[in-house]
Write a protein that binds this DNA or RNA. Sequence first.
DNA 1: TTGAAGTGTTTTTTATAATGAACACATGCT
DNA 2: AGCATGTGTTCATTATAAAAAACACTTCAA
Lengths: 180, 180
Amino acid sequence: MDVGGTLYALRTQRGLSQRELARRCGVANGTISLIESNAINPSVGLLRQIVHALPMNLSEFFAFEHLEERKLFYRASELREIGGKGISYRQIGTNLNGRALQMLDEVYAPRTDTGKTMLHHTGEEGGVVISGEIEVTVADQRAILGPGDAYYFDSNLPHRFRNIGKEPCHIVSAATPPSF
Amino acid sequence: MDVGGTLYALRTQRGLSQRELARRCGVANGTISLIESNAINPSVGLLRQIVHALPMNLSEFFAFEHLEERKLFYRASELREIGGKGISYRQIGTNLNGRALQMLDEVYAPRTDTGKTMLHHTGEEGGVVISGEIEVTVADQRAILGPGDAYYFDSNLPHRFRNIGKEPCHIVSAATPPSF
DNA sequence: TTGAAGTGTTTTTTATAATGAACACATGCT
DNA sequence: AGCATGTGTTCATTATAAAAAACACTTCAA
């Protein structure tokens, strides 16, 4: 169901970069990127070549994929990073297809922002601030939340998160259904 | 190493035709043919779709592939048919890559012939006639062989087999290295 | 502060997989 | 015989994967 997520999990588990893996198996690094984001549907031969460099065989690879689907517990190092640019979103589970919930462990670096154009998507979301401070804007309401404070709103409402402080802000959030 | 052979073995094991399998998984029947002959390198997604119709998952599929590589014994029904047009060649083993020997259980229907243009390829080959009669021509020599008779020659010599009798002719043969 | 080397992503081109239709052959039925 | 239905293969077209290069960004060292 999720070849890209499985490859990502196995690669990062081994501490390899996309380029290092690409070098070891003789595949273009861009191809690894596209596979991990499920943007392409790799051929069996190519996937075999990549997986051998892990090193692993295809039977083990797909067995691991099935294990992932039934995974219950995640070590801190196993959360999947899906953020970027100073905002870290570490997701519980690599493949959320068919799941109801998207849980994230978020860290906003100082002066980071989800952007001037407000976010909006179907569903509902909530979160609790663990440390630091965050300015949350939802529709026409705005608040600065600190440790222990929380939020909950309909994701259809335009919303925005900004860390206007000098400390990183750590939040644990949940959304239903998963949005990206 | 041999996705095509593995798919062939699993499909025929279940008594399915290429078209029946194609119908069940929603794939073009020609595609199944091309995969089985290793003429194309299917995508993971497509192979998954096909394998699910067997029904099986990819981990099991590739585990089976590894089993095949170490297979020692073959039931009569498991020999792989690689002949056609009245001449049956039933090969021991589906994938001969890296193997030294090609063993065949051959049946020539009455009035069949390997063709007017003589065969030739590197290696050596031999065989024993089990039943029926066969006319064997090698270079400038010709003989009619019956049950218990045998042949052995350098495959570089032009050769031809013709069943000129009224009974099917059954031969067990070996060649090294495998030629097709 | 500049630049070199690292990261993952995106784009353009080329190669190839996948389809759908046609083909060639066999079997069985009327 | 003649036709329908089955088999696997092959071909031309379309869709898509894979490579190579450019891109945007970070980190670290001079």
